Computed example of a mutant assay.
Amino acid sequence: MQFSVLASGSTGNAIYVENEDHAFIVDAGLTGKKMEQLFAKVDRDIKKLSGIFVTHEHIDHIRGVGVLARKYHVPVYANAKTWAAMDDKVGNIPLEQRFQFDMETVQSFGSLDVESFAVSHDAADPMFYTFHENGRKLVVITDTGYVSDRMKGIIQGADSFVFESNHDVSMLQMGSYPWSTKRRILSDVGHVSNEDAAVAMSEVVEQKPTRIYLSHLSKDNNMKDLARMSVSQTLQSCGIMPGEFVTLLDTDADEPTKVVTV
């Protein structure tokens, strides 16, 4: 199993996951043209996509879903409430390309098992995904207000995490956003901060080589260096030294990460 974070941030999100037989993306939150460019940058053929797993209906996660589905005849997977919430945003997707992926279930695609799990976010029925193959585990969780014990149990011990590190609390509080927006981001259905992400990660990583991709950084209320420093310091305070077995990696809103093996 290999993957790349094609794009991650408040302007658009997409994660590419492949094995020998299938190629998927989690979300397509950029335009169809931009998605094609990102695939070219990681030297992958977008025509070979096996499916799109949708997490929730916010536009930074579904902007390109309809275009890719229609242009390349790609199956789209989402739960019933998400389908209902995004139908008028993605345009017509043929019935034969519409698949339901229920919450808290596992669907298998050959040797690749894909597990869905609930998160706490202000969308119709938001869920994210864990990928399992040959004893290896990749977790994608980029939009949640907090990480519950149930979530921790599902994502525990992954070999690679694409994990939200959305904002620095001080930057958000002192920034120009209206208070209603700040309150939403800081709420239990908003986004996790750098420090809260690190505390959650400290409780789910195991003592083995683990990659953590800091994702969905706010363009106004965070910076890569700040996120990495904050997460690193908080992990250290929890007894985990980044660089020993945990590696922290950046993601970008416009540039994909290298394709790596889980």
Rank of each mutant, 00 (worst) to 15 (best):
V5N: 06
S111V: 13
G243D: 08
R183F: 14
D220V: 13
S148V: 04
H56F: 10
A23Q: 15
Q97H: 09
D60M: 07
S111M: 07
D113R: 07
A28S: 11
V204H: 00
L138E: 07
G243I: 09
D113P: 03
W83E: 02
Q156H: 12
P256L: 13
F24P: 05
D27G: 06
F128H: 10
V189P: 02
K182D: 03
I155W: 00
G110S: 05
K47Y: 13
E36M: 13
G157D: 09
F117M: 02
Y146F: 14
I155F: 00
D88C: 09
G145M: 08
P256M: 14
A23Y: 11
G243Y: 14
S148G: 11
F39L: 13
M35P: 12
Q236M: 14
V246I: 13
G175W: 04
W83K: 00
V65G: 02
N13K: 06
G239W: 00
Q236H: 11
V76A: 00
N194T: 07
I15E: 06
E104C: 05
E36C: 07
I155K: 01
L249Q: 06
P94M: 12
D188A: 14
Q236Y: 06
A158I: 04
N19R: 01
A7S: 11
V76T: 13
Y16S: 03
Q173H: 05
W179L: 11
G145V: 06
Y177S: 15
L112Y: 00
A123K: 10
V90G: 10
S10M: 08
L248A: 02
E18K: 00
P94W: 13
T55F: 02
A200M: 03
F39K: 11
R184Y: 12
L172P: 07
F53E: 08
D225F: 11
R136C: 01
V114W: 02
V114T: 02
M223F: 14
A28C: 05
H58A: 13
S187V: 04
T144L: 05
G175F: 09
I46T: 00
V140E: 03
V162R: 01
V67P: 08
L217C: 12
K258T: 10
V17S: 01
G145N: 06
V262A: 02
G12R: 06
Q37H: 13
F24K: 01
Q207F: 08
A80K: 14
K182Y: 13
